[in-house]
């Protein structure tokens, strides 16, 4: 903030070329604001619920029971851990899906605050992302009792689980920032994204595993890695099991490249379009 004494332009925005770096730096430069906004968002999710945060764990725990009943008892799957694989898939995928939906709608949801003050608006999608990472990490705590129930030994690879959640959110934020300004103009974007998240649920290894696709072979096994969510979900499952990830380097490269490229494109588009977009709010 410039000191009193000189006239400065009001409400200057980040220049487009510097956006990818400048938006990332907001995480430290606007810590206090972000923590307050994250608190508002996370707390808002559980207002008027007496069990509060416990719901983040209770919900997946109850889902696990349903999956166990469905996959292990009803359809007689040999893999005793199948219900756990599905549950982990759901948690990691939801982190992606919810982050994507929240970032796409982050400007429209905060319209009243946007009309009140000027601060870097990239804070809104960043806040949505951080909130969803926190909620997903809380949900992932459910794997701890499952380790005991299924008698799986704990290894250092358990850190893959939170890592995968962070990775899933990272895959979403770039795309979300790219779409957020357009959603201010036409909220059809939001509806389309909801469909993408629903469809992606089945196209990603949530109800099935990467190993199953590879075993079956064929065309789909080759093109499946184009889906950047294959790696995070598979990573989390290996983390639970404590086994090394046996995917090729191309999967890692692709996943990483998707995150970086989408972030760069997304934050640049966001920086150049948000000024015009907020007029539609």
């Amino acid at each position: 903030m410039s000191p009193v004494g000189g006239l400065h332009d009001i409400g200057v925005n980040t220049p487009m070329v510097r956006a990818p770096w400048d938006h990332l730096r907001l995480l430290t430069s606007h810590r206090f604001l972000m923590s307050n906004l994250v608190r508002r968002e996370v707390r808002g999710r559980f207002k008027n619920a007496s069990l509060g945060y416990a719901w983040t764990v209770i919900e997946p725990a109850m889902l696990a029971v349903v999956y166990y009943f469905l996959f292990s008892l009803l359809s007689g799957n040999d893999d005793i851990l199948y219900a756990v694989w599905v549950l982990i898939g759901v948690i990691v995928w939801s982190c992606f899906g919810k982050t994507l939906q929240a970032t796409v709608g982050s400007l429209t949801r905060n319209a009243s605050m946007i009309h009140l003050v000027h601060f870097p608006r990239a804070i809104f999608p960043l806040t949505s992302t951080v909130s969803n990472i926190i909620l997903s990490l809380l949900s992932s705590l459910v794997v701890l009792p499952l380790l005991v129930v299924f008698d799986v030994s704990v290894t250092w690879r358990l850190v893959f689980v939170p890592l995968a959640i962070g990775l899933a959110a990272a895959q979403a934020i770039g795309l979300g920032m790219l779409l957020a300004p357009f959603n201010c103009v036409q909220q059809d974007v939001e509806h389309m994204v909801r469909f993408i998240v629903r469809a992606g649920f089945f196209l990603s290894p949530v109800m099935w595993t990467w190993e199953m696709a590879v075993e079956r072979g064929g065309l789909y096994a080759d093109i499946i890695l184009i889906n950047p969510m294959v790696l995070p979900i598979t990573l989390a499952r290996h983390g639970f099991e404590g086994t090394p990830l046996d995917m090729g380097p191309e999967a890692l490269v692709f996943c990483f490249a998707w995150t970086v490229v989408m972030w760069v494109i997304g934050s640049m588009v966001f920086a150049s379009k948000e000024r015009g977009a907020v007029k539609h709010l």
């Binding site: 009193v4 006239l7 400065h8 409400g11 000027h118 000024r275």
Partner: peptide
């Protein structure tokens, strides 16, 4: 307040 940026012309302030 900087909420909207002017399409033409300029808006300047000295201070917060």
């Amino acid at each position: 307040a900087g909420v909207f940026s002017p399409d033409v012309g300029e808006a300047k302030a000295s201070g917060r």
